[in-house]
Every structure is written in structure tokens, then in C-alpha cells.
Simulated assay, not measured.
Amino acid sequence: MKVSDILRVKGNTLYTVHPDEHLAQAVQTMAERDIGSLVVMEYGDLVGMLTFREINLVLARNGGSVGTMLVRTAMDDAPLTCTLETDMDEVRRMMLGCHARYMPVMENRMLMGVVSFYDVAKAVVDSQNFENKLLKAYIRDWPQEEPSQAQS
């Protein structure tokens, strides 16, 4: 299974933010949209990711306030990325290795979507459920063995 398969099912709704936007506004957008990340774009290029992890770090450092901080000061400026052709096993390995919950999907410097750890887990479970259904159907239709003549 490839990243493109997940995006096909998930859809291509993207939420982005500019690095010079106020962090409080980005937090408001995330809360209103019930999303855990925003892709930070500047001049059409990916420059970072803002997730609830980065926001929590800012809140911890500043006594629970984001004040007038900008997204630029909180974002991860070197996020992991993948392509539409990246295999899901590779995405899972990358996400687990770096504790990443969100990964931008890039194709020739163009943002194609974001894959979350939830998306990856759901794809694995759906794939396993489909495989289990096929195996159960195969077992149910297992041909009966003819009793051998030697046993008489």
C-alpha cells in the first residue's frame, strides 16, 4: 500500500498557515477545525509543521500562554516528508523512529496532503480486516477431501 492510496480515501483537504501568523490564531484554527497539525507554507514552499506537540512545548515554556508569538518561533522547521509513492511500511517506520504524528506528502516541491499516524494505523487495520475476510472465505470454501480407498 502506498501513501497515494491513503490520500485517495482520506481526501485532499489541507490546512496551512503562514510562518508570520500569530500562534494564537493558528491554535484557534486547529481548535475550530478539530485538527492536530497545520502545514507551514511560505511563498508556495513547505517551511515547517505546527502540531499540538510544538504548541504544548511553547505553553510549557511560557506559563501556559502563547502571547504574541509567531508560528515561525514554534514550528518544526525540518519535518519528515514522504511522497505519493512511499510505501506505508516505510512511512510507519519513519513515523515511529522520529515520534512523528503527522507527515507532509510532497511531490516535486508541491504539497499533496498530510498523512497522520491515525491514517497509517487505520490503513493497516483496514488492510488486515480485508485479508482476514478473504482468508475466512477461503477456509469456508475449503474443498472436502475424499476418503481414501486404503482405509476400507
Rank of each mutant, 00 (worst) to 15 (best):
G64C: 14
A60F: 05
D76W: 02
V58C: 09
P79C: 02
L50P: 06
G36D: 04
E54K: 02
M41E: 14
T51A: 05
D45R: 04
V66R: 10
L59I: 10
A60I: 07
Y43I: 03
G64E: 14
M49S: 01
I35F: 08
G67S: 06
I35K: 00
N56W: 08
V71G: 07
E54F: 00
Y43H: 11
G48M: 04
T73P: 06
L70A: 12
L57N: 07
M69N: 05
T51W: 09
D77P: 02
I35Q: 03
Y43K: 06
F52H: 10
V47C: 05
R72D: 15
G44R: 00
P79N: 14
M41F: 06
D77I: 04
L59G: 06
T73N: 11
I35H: 04
R53D: 15
E42P: 00
R61D: 13
P79F: 03
S65L: 07
M75A: 15
A74R: 07
G64S: 12
S37E: 10
P79Q: 08
G44V: 07
R61H: 05
S65P: 02
A60V: 07
V39N: 06
M41K: 02
D45I: 00
I35A: 00
D77A: 11
G36L: 08
N56I: 01
G36W: 08
A74T: 09
E54R: 01
F52V: 00
L46V: 00
V39C: 02
N56G: 00
G44A: 01
L57R: 12
L46W: 12
A78Y: 04
F52P: 04
